[in-house]
Write a protein that binds this DNA or RNA. Sequence first.
DNA 1: AGTGCAACTCTTTTT
DNA 2: GAGTTGCACT
Length: 750
Amino acid sequence: MAEKLPPYLSSLNPEQLAAVRHEGGNLLILAGAGSGKTRVITTKIAYLVRERGVDPESILAVTFTNKAAKEMRDRAAAIESRCSRAVMRTFHSFGAWFLRRNAAAAGLDSNFTIYDDDDQTTILHGLLPQYNRSECSRLVQTISRAKDLGLDPDSPSLGTLLADPEARRIYAMYQEKLRSTGNVDFGDLIGLPARLLARDEAVRRRTRQRFRVTLVDEYQDSNVAQFELLRLLAGPTAEPAAWPSSDGEDPRSPRPAYVCVVGDDDQSIYRFRGAEVRNILRFPELFPGTEIVRLERNYRSFQSILDVAGQVVSRNSGRLGKKLVAERLGGAKPELALLDDEEAEAAYCARVCKERVAGGGRWSEVAILYRTNAQSRTFENLFVREKIPYRIVGSSRFYDREEVKDALAYLAMLCNPRDEVAFKRVVNKPARGVGETSVELVLDSAASLGGDLMAASRSPVEGLRGKARSGLKDFASLLGSLGESLGGKATEGDSLASLARLLVEDSGLLEYHRSQDEVAGTQKAANLEELVNAASLYPRSREGLAEFLETIELDRSIAGEQAEAADAVTLITMHNTKGLEFPVVIATGLEQGLFPREEEEGEDLEEQRRLFYVAVTRAKDELRLTSCRWRRLHGKLFETGPSRFLGEIDSSFLRRSTKAHAVAAARPFGSGSSSPGIRAGAARPDSSSAPPRESWRAGIAVYHEDYGAGYVLKVSPTPSSGPLVVVRFETGKQAQFFPKFTTKLEIAHE
DNA sequence: AGTGCAACTCTTTTT
DNA sequence: GAGTTGCACT
């Protein structure tokens, strides 16, 4: 007997519906690629609010990316508008939110600064001047991994991670520095809330009373520290939390929250950042009463594509086990193209793109996936020449640029006068004669003022004379006037951009970079303008400034970048494709030594198989794999063998590209042991694998280094100089060349 | 203090 | 091959 369901539920399949309506104990949703995971989680939130009368404010939903959090918010609110009152954030953004609301209990000011890797390195470098910056950067990495594992400097098990007892001392020093200045790093955004919850009964009770339902998306990418935080948020569980609570569990505290985690153990690809697959593998054991719902129906890809993905990932041990079944049966066999080198690979991809468009498709339907960012260049070079529109997806690093960080440091000082990293960064930028020695004096002076560096800069610092003294005064008055502008009455339509503009102009940063740009050919001034522009989205107020800074600290994607409207081919790393889908996917560089890397084995190799699985399952209609015989790495040419992953796929599941080079296609491949890895220094044979001789004839497309793209109008033979080629360029220019004597003119491939 | 050149190091990187 | 870092020079 079919029950009457509202439309937003009736379109779900039975497993999805079960996951949405499940209640009682905890729930683990094992959601295969393309199984409608986001739909289930957002529908579940809406269902709880609408059908089960759950107060949206008592729902906490955490994700790993800002983009995912935004999508979750939008989609849940689209079903049920009240959902927008639920707390839907990334893990880190939730941590920051929680700490600012419980700042006093956590021993922080509510306006604390969140330091990124670069800032962390600066802190450590300040503490350990005998180490150079890159050594400090390595140490910071290790400290961050320790934090991912939820380990304090005094945790007994820290020794396994930090063999050197000195490292433990450094970690402790670093941590002490953060605490004494009242600021945090990314790891603290997870660790400090967990410790606070473990230690403070009142905070714990309040928090647990508020959040009755906790959902975690992409749970397979959580680390140990995040797992501990989740456990402390949810309430009593199988094992005691890692940190001793002062008073044990209060029997009067509310019953544990309902915890629902969603993930796919086969898509765990961030181990190198501390993600712990075992969190998902052991979830049922650690959250007692857990039920598991498997979403194994794939709505995205043809079965032929899933077969390839499944064959590789099924070689992994330690999986929860899940068989993905395509709703879309059939589909063409994925194509494997064995090519000579990167140029041939790029040309192959260009051809696929053009054929798609020629067949009525759009550029944006094709995605080219690679293992490392460096691989994008060959594609870019060719696509520019061939006029194939493309976009590169990845972090823009805009907010990592020196000039942008400088401007932001001024703003950070306004928001938090105890931000030592920001102070050191800009107190003498542009140069004001405040050198290292003077900075130390100011820091000492600030120590007696509760760490207030603004106050210390204003008051006369003992021992400072002459230029250092007047320079510091200038710095203080600049910040003072900026602060006044911030505190002053904002007029209608006035945004934070006016403050940012005042800053870049009055500090002299803009002028300095304008002149530098002319000499160095950089565009730093433009970047500062861009920053001013980004600030225009926020109101000119203390709150607006704080929000602007936190958004940048937690979300490095550039505002407005989400414009995906343009019709362009996507160039993207395999890691970055998680959660995305494309009609056509070309997974490139399937070579032993590159993907996987030569030395990878065990857990690392399994993670690479999962990455392959992620990459391949992005494809909806068409999947292509490429493998090159020659690969340039770090500027050197290597002869490679096909990826062992190709050998793990039954050859009947793939079709060889007929257009791939005959010699390359003839080379054998099989299981990893027999296939050669990258061999350095092998000489390139000239006859067998060199591209065929190019021929000049009228009508073909050409590219000239100086004049750009064009086509050949006419070719006339000459007795001794080879052909004379007359070219018409797109600029309208017409010129003739002897290809024999110039390298600037070449045939545009395909 | 600011610039210039040689040496080094390279995966992935949601936060 | 390219970007960054560190040291040395002025």
